[in-house]
Design a protein around this nucleic acid. Structure first.
Lengths: 150, 150
DNA sequence: TCTTGACTTCAAGCCCAGTTGAAGTCGTAT
DNA sequence: ATACGACTTCAACTGGGCTTGAAGTCAAGA
């Protein structure tokens, strides 16, 4: 019980590879102090942050989005009940909109594709708010869903 | 009205770039005949297949998974009501399991991360069937969800 | 002393889902 | 005749999310 965790300990507790943890640190999702030898020492609260990263990725958020959410939490201590509550409410709102999209897609496959309605650019299922469906080039432009909403 | 579509026409009808359509053909998701000059001619039913690809990607399936689903449909004519019904039922089952996972994640963020339960490898939210959570190295091992189920 | 194991950095590589660009071929319109 | 636009192939590049490997540092144990 040292109060901090080595990268190996953190990896063991979270199931996330050390290489991934270094990558997350580089990307600003987690932070570590250094020992005299230059070794990382993570605050114990980091395990919760890593868990959040894993969960959020399952939901479909990019690391950059997750970084933005995590920036609202203190890096070196456990969040208060209030702080955690705020975070998890915005998180739940995002999940809800994701679920709503899936529901649309579920009926869309019969109603929309099945019937031959194929103007995807203006499709109400893919593009409910009449936003421009495609935004600029790049591999992942389909996957965004109003990332700045909420 | 030629009965078939050029790649440009298919792109215009679906909103999917010609480069992506060539990529889909290369990956076996769609098929085209060739004119004497080597130009692609797509059966009209291809537009429906492309729509399916776009929808399925929004849900979160990889092109390889989508290829597997599409392989159950005829490439060069519209699917019968039966064929389409079968496909959309398995599709809906997949969406349902995706939604169920999101519901688990939604409560998991407070119940599981919030309370400090951080044994992600054996976490019931991430890994409900007690499957091994991590399967081999590779960037995307979190994202799979029993791809061969159904 | 020497080896082992955990750590460090840095560069390169991998997979996915495409995009981009160069170089060339058609067919039609002017 | 020639220019234009739509098409072709092929190779190289992008971006996200890491992993892998090489080369080095440090502390503890046989």
């Amino acid at each position: 019980m040292t109060g901090t965790l080595t990268i190996g300990e953190l990896a063991a507790r979270t199931g996330v590879a050390t290489s991934a943890l270094r990558f997350y640190e580089e990307r600003g999702l987690i932070r570590a102090e250094r020992t005299g030898a230059g070794h990382r020492r993570f605050p114990r609260a980091t395990a919760r942050r890593v868990a959040f990263v894993v969960f959020a990725q399952r939901v479909g958020f990019s690391l950059e989005e997750i970084r933005g959410e995590l920036a609202k939490l203190p890096a070196d201590r456990a969040p208060t009940r209030q702080e955690w509550g705020r975070l998890s409410r915005t998180w739940q709102a995002r999940i809800d909109s994701r679920i709503a999209e899936l529901e649309r897609l579920k009926t869309g496959i019969t109603d929309c594709i099945g019937c031959g309605c194929l103007s995807l650019d203006r499709c109400a299922v893919l593009n409910p708010d009449d936003r421009l469906f495609r935004r600029g080039p790049g591999p992942r432009y389909w996957l965004e869903d109003a990332p700045d909403a909420g």
